[in-house]
Simulated scan of single mutants.
Amino acid sequence: MAGLLDNVNQRTQMVGQNRLELLLFQLRGEQFYGINVFKVREVLPCPALTAIPHSHPVVRGVSYVRGETVPIIDTGMAIGRQPIPDEELSESLVIVSEYNRKTQGFLVRRVERIVNLNWEDVHPPPKRARAEYLTAVTELEGKLVEILDVEKILAEVSPIDDSVSESFQSTLDTSGDAAMRVLVVDDSSVARGQIRRCMEAVGLEVVICNDGREALDYLESLVADGSPIHDHLAMMISDVEMPEMDGYTLVTHCKDNPVLAPLYIMLHSSLSGVFNQAMVQRVGADEFMAKFNPNELAERVMAVMDKQQHMPS
Rank of each mutant, 00 (worst) to 15 (best):
I79A: 00
A178Q: 12
I84V: 03
I79V: 11
R19G: 07
D177Q: 13
P124H: 00
V259I: 10
D177Y: 09
I265T: 08
G80A: 08
R196L: 07
G80P: 02
M302A: 15
V182I: 15
L219I: 09
M279Q: 15
L89W: 12
E151R: 00
T103D: 08
Q17M: 06
V40Y: 02
G212A: 06
K291W: 04
A261N: 14
E241A: 00
F32W: 13
Y133H: 13
E120Y: 03
L4R: 13
T75F: 07
S167T: 09
V70H: 01
Q26S: 12
L154C: 01
L107R: 03
D86T: 12
H123Q: 12
L49M: 08
L267F: 12
M77C: 10
D149E: 01
R66D: 03
Y99K: 06
E141L: 10
L260C: 00
V94P: 06
R110D: 15
I114T: 00
G67E: 08
S163N: 02
L117E: 15
P258L: 05
L5S: 15
N118P: 00
D246I: 07
A48C: 03
M266I: 10
L172V: 12
G176E: 02
D173R: 05
L24K: 05
V190D: 06
F106V: 12
V190F: 11
A48K: 14
V190R: 04
P243G: 08
A224C: 07
M279K: 15
K152E: 07
N276Y: 04
H123R: 12
P45H: 10
E287A: 13
V150I: 13
W119F: 11
R81G: 09
G34W: 05
D149T: 00
T252M: 08
L148C: 00
N36D: 08
T138H: 04
K291E: 14
V137Y: 00
D231V: 03
R196H: 13
H310A: 10
N18Y: 02
E205Q: 15
E156K: 10
N18E: 15
G29E: 10
E200K: 04
V58P: 01
N7C: 11
P312H: 13
M236K: 02
V58N: 11
W119I: 04
S97Q: 04
R213F: 06
S272R: 03
E88S: 07
S55Q: 12
N116T: 08
G142Y: 02
M180H: 09
E287N: 05
A51S: 15
P47G: 02
V251T: 09
V259D: 14
R282F: 01
L144W: 05
V40H: 01
A78Q: 02
L117C: 09
L233N: 06
